[in-house]
């Protein structure tokens, strides 16, 4: 018990240490570039950039699997339930006077909702989008009901969650995001083979001995974590765009799956950094600007993709003759 408390303390210390290291990196970058938005006085911007960079990796990585499973809208459904989770957190804080972070309640509610989407699909004959629509509506209904029960303070506080806000990324929230980021990246790195197989050919993956049900559940739970993590900057309404738009762009430009993941990350990072920059100087909402930049990049990707197709090799290789297995004949 004491040991685990110490370990938890050490892990938390490490995460805040990482955050301090990031402040230092940003300060050095400010010294080189002289950019006002990352000056040492604005540590909230340092945190916003860190959160943005993490979103730029985890959203397209998970989004790549979702888009190619034709689950592009699941992010929207989970974002609305994450909104319910935020409302639950604010409600508990207000009624029970406890200091739980609304992001943590959002994680819990979104993960439960993610599993509900899968369970509805597994236990009924409904299409996936039907279960998503049910969970989306329930989430938003729960959120709006809780807020209306405790009007005034809650309704004002909810705005930052709906639209996202660069300046409200606290150190605690940045640390929560780092934890979510680590969970997502490590899980995908470990299960990448299985997730790819299930995404590409569910039946063949089942024949190969992989539990399609469990990998689907893992995928939706990871999506819930991405949504909550990205919600801080993007806001509930636009968070799903980061799961879909960079991936759609990368699909136009890439030949292989591996390439598509890296290209989607590059597009997402570009959108996040440009978006945060423009939002800061134009005093606009970051989430909206990031999505507009991402959509512009998608438009460019479509144009470049078409051009590459035209310039591509016209001649097609021919199929070579079938070969007998030398190894078996040699045995």
């Amino acid at each position: 018990m004491i040991l685990s408390t110490l370990q938890a303390g050490a892990a938390t210390g490490l995460l805040y240490g990482l955050l301090d290291l990031w402040y230092w990196v940003m300060t050095q970058a400010w010294k080189v570039t002289g950019l006002e938005m990352i000056s040492p006085e604005y540590t909230f911007m340092h945190r916003a950039v860190l959160v943005g960079l993490c979103i730029g990796v985890m959203a397209p990585v998970i989004g790549t699997f979702l888009v190619h499973r034709q689950l592009a809208l699941i992010g929207d459904a989970l974002a609305h339930t994450a909104f319910a989770g935020v409302a639950v957190g604010l409600f508990l804080n207000s009624v029970l006077m406890i200091g739980v972070s609304p992001y943590l309640t959002a994680v819990v509610v979104a993960v439960i909702a993610a599993l509900c989407i899968e369970l509805i699909s597994e236990t009924t004959d409904a299409y996936n989008d039907v279960s998503m629509a049910i969970v989306l509506s329930t989430g938003f209904a729960l959120g709006s009901t809780l807020i209306s029960l405790n009007a005034g303070g809650l309704a004002v506080g909810i705005n930052q969650y709906l639209f996202g806000n660069l300046s409200t990324v606290s150190a605690d929230n940045a640390v929560i995001l780092l934890v979510l980021f680590a969970i997502i990246v490590v899980t995908v790195a470990i299960t990448r083979n299985q997730l790819l197989y299930v995404t590409f050919d569910e039946t063949a993956a089942a024949v190969a001995g992989f539990s399609v049900t469990w990998y689907n559940r893992i995928m939706v739970m990871l999506t819930a974590l991405v949504v909550v993590g990205a919600m801080q900057i993007m806001g509930v309404i636009l968070v799903a765009a980061m799961l879909v738009v960079p991936v759609a762009g990368a699909t136009q430009l890439s030949r292989s799956f591996r390439e598509s993941i890296f290209v989607s990350i590059a597009l997402a990072e570009l959108a996040v950094l440009l978006g945060i920059g423009v939002a800061y100087y134009a005093e606009a909402t970051a989430g909206g600007v990031i999505v507009l930049v991402a959509v512009a990049l998608y438009g460019c990707s479509v144009a470049v993709g078409k051009l590459l197709d035209r310039l591509g090799p016209e001649s097609s290789p021919t199929v070579a003759p079938i070969q007998a297995d030398d190894d078996t004949t040699g045995d």
């Binding site: 590409f200 292989s256 598509s260």
Partner: peptide
């Protein structure tokens, strides 16, 4: 889905 023939065949080894 952007995926190459080699990536598909690779799945046989999974």
């Amino acid at each position: 889905m952007p995926i190459t023939v080699r990536e598909v065949v690779k799945m046989g080894r999974f």
